[in-house]
Design a protein around this nucleic acid. Structure first.
Lengths: 138, 138
DNA sequence: TATTGTTATACTCTATAACTATA
DNA sequence: TATAGTTATAGAGTATAACAATA
């Protein structure tokens, strides 16, 4: 065992699932990043640009363009955050809630299908490893 | 437990490790995709464009540009594959071997550092899940 | 005819730095 | 002065379709 690199396997899995997701959600006409953003907002909790950027791994400058398109399509709104007007709070619109729910649904379906044969503790172990890699520092 | 989506956590971990990697390897002046390609070629086994594309999750049309830059920098060579001259066999040059080795070394170091506290069977479980997600079909 | 890879096009993502507005 | 986000720019990744060479 223990042949390849976990990190290379990680990137492989990410590309594969991303491609599968955009294929299944092709009718929404959204990019992978847009799907990722909406998927993270799906819980209905508003987030600032920085917070969302940290969650999906994109810088604020990149996120601006993604949010521009989502806003233009009426899926999110941007508003200054009460208490600190420098920050921008991103919230799903009614349409956005519906779209995000569909994304989460598809996400869960893909996940269940892919991991159907695996024991719960195996999946839980994977979560632990993913979290450790996410928090890796130099 | 079991709050978020494994797939969203997967993408988060990928972004984080990718960013860490390019930071640690900034002296090589390579993009994430170039690092990914070289990391996959590091075992010294030649691969066709299709094979490498499948390994790193990019389409042949995308890979062409990545390979163009790696070839221009003298890290890989392209040659028709004996037996099927339609296919292009990608091989590391001497410089490429050295660079790929450094990448694998850094990859392993990041991985060891991040997963230091975790039991071997937890990491192995994560590999199983990553493989299952990589092979997910609709 | 089918397959492998490249090219062409248009759009999206990315990094960096400069900028605005708030704090 | 510092922070949050946007804008500007240039380069890289992406999907799709059309194409040449080979099978």
């Amino acid at each position: 065992m223990k042949s390849g690199s976990v990190i290379l396997e990680l990137q492989r899995a990410t590309h594969a699932t991303l491609q599968l997701l955009t294929t299944e959600l092709v009718d929404l006409d959204l990019t992978a990043s847009e799907i990722n953003a909406l998927g993270n907002l799906a819980d209905g909790v508003g987030r600032t640009v920085s917070e969302l950027g940290a969650a999906i791994g994109t810088r604020p400058a990149t996120l601006t363009g993604i949010l521009d398109r989502l806003e233009r399509r009426g899926l999110i709104t941007r508003a200054p955050r009460p208490g600190d007007r420098r920050a921008v709070l991103i919230t799903l619109t009614t349409d956005g809630v519906r779209t995000a729910a569909l994304i989460r649904q598809t996400l869960d379906a893909v996940e269940q299908r892919a991991l159907a044969g695996l024991a719960a503790d195996v999946v839980q172990a994977a979560r632990t490893v993913l979290l450790a890699l996410t928090e890796a520092r130099r």
